[in-house]
């Protein structure tokens, strides 16, 4: 049920993508995402799609997991497709009762679904190939220049690390609570919305009580170790760019530049 793999969970591996510096992956994905949103013709689309597919192949992730990210968001894709297809005015292609499909609508729908699918595929790659702790270290390093503007970079990263750290714990706890209440005959899926909401109380009350207790324990544990954020902290595993990182950043930037240049051709 809740066990097994959740969406975007880190899958251990030893591919080139797994070994890249987390900052490279964040920057690379941002560049790829902008490329995917920015392409304006089929050449641009090909470039962005090629980049995405290459990244997926290089990651050596099982296809099931990659497709899983698309499958979990299929509803979004379908609704976007239908809205685009039906609501774009233009040359009529077909009429289904009150609904009209135009030629332009079909094109727009296919285009937006392709964009979204590529975005979803690429967006999950950093979390799929990077342990959460490393990923937040990378994010902290990227936003740390903003510290001069008063952005608490370390604290933000710390909060993110903690939140990520507790997701599996909470999932596990939720599973235990669900099992325990089901052992007393609780049903979590039946009835009207009001009854359904009420049937979730036996799950959420213990879960929140547990989360608060855990947060309190953690705060005490950190304080008793004299934890102070930010200033002068060093890392056990310092982030370091390798040659591969420069190549990957170079390639993604080249694709981004190419896609933008193609808009003006």
């Amino acid at each position: 049920m809740l066990s097994g793999i959740s969406l975007g969970q880190y899958i251990p591996g030893d591919s080139l993508l797994h070994r890249l510096d987390p900052r490279t992956k964040v920057i690379g994905v941002l560049a790829a995402a902008v490329s995917i949103l920015a392409f304006a013709n089929w050449q641009g689309f090909l470039l962005a799609a090629l980049l995405t597919l290459t990244a997926l192949l290089v990651s050596k992730l099982p296809p099931g997991i990659i497709l899983g990210s698309l499958k979990s968001l299929w509803l979004l894709l379908v609704i976007t497709f239908l809205l685009q297809a039906f609501l774009t005015p233009g040359t009529l292609l077909a009429v289904l009762g009150p609904l009209k499909i135009s030629r332009e609508g079909m094109f727009a729908a296919v285009e937006i679904v392709l964009r979204l699918a590529l975005l979803i595929l690429i967006a999950f790659l950093p979390t799929l190939t990077t342990p959460p702790i490393k990923l937040t270290a990378g994010l902290e390093s990227i936003i740390s220049p903003l510290r001069r503007l008063g952005v608490p970079a370390h604290e933000l990263a710390m909060m993110m690390t903690l939140a990520l750290r507790f997701i599996p714990t909470l999932l596990q706890e939720a599973e235990v609570v669900i099992s325990a209440q089901r052992s007393r005959g609780a049903g979590f899926t039946t009835g009207s919305p009001a009854r359904w909401a009420r049937s979730l109380l036996p799950l959420f009350v213990p879960l929140f009580a547990g989360a608060l207790r855990r947060a309190n324990d953690l705060a005490v544990a950190m304080e008793s170790r004299c934890y102070r954020g930010g200033a002068n902290r060093t890392r056990m595993n310092a982030l370091k760019f390798s040659a591969a990182d420069y190549v990957v950043i170079g390639v993604t930037m080249a694709v981004l530049a190419g896609v933008i240049a193609l808009r003006f051709v």
Binding site: A180, Q181, A186, V205, P206, A209, G210
Partner: peptide, 24 residues
């Protein structure tokens, strides 16, 4: 379950113990 006290959720002990029998 292990540490079953963490699964209590009702407002009173009575209501919590009654959860199972009511579901029956």
């Amino acid at each position: 379950f292990q540490q079953p006290e963490q699964q209590l959720f009702e407002e009173t002990v009575f209501a919590d113990v009654a959860f199972g029998p009511r579901n029956m």
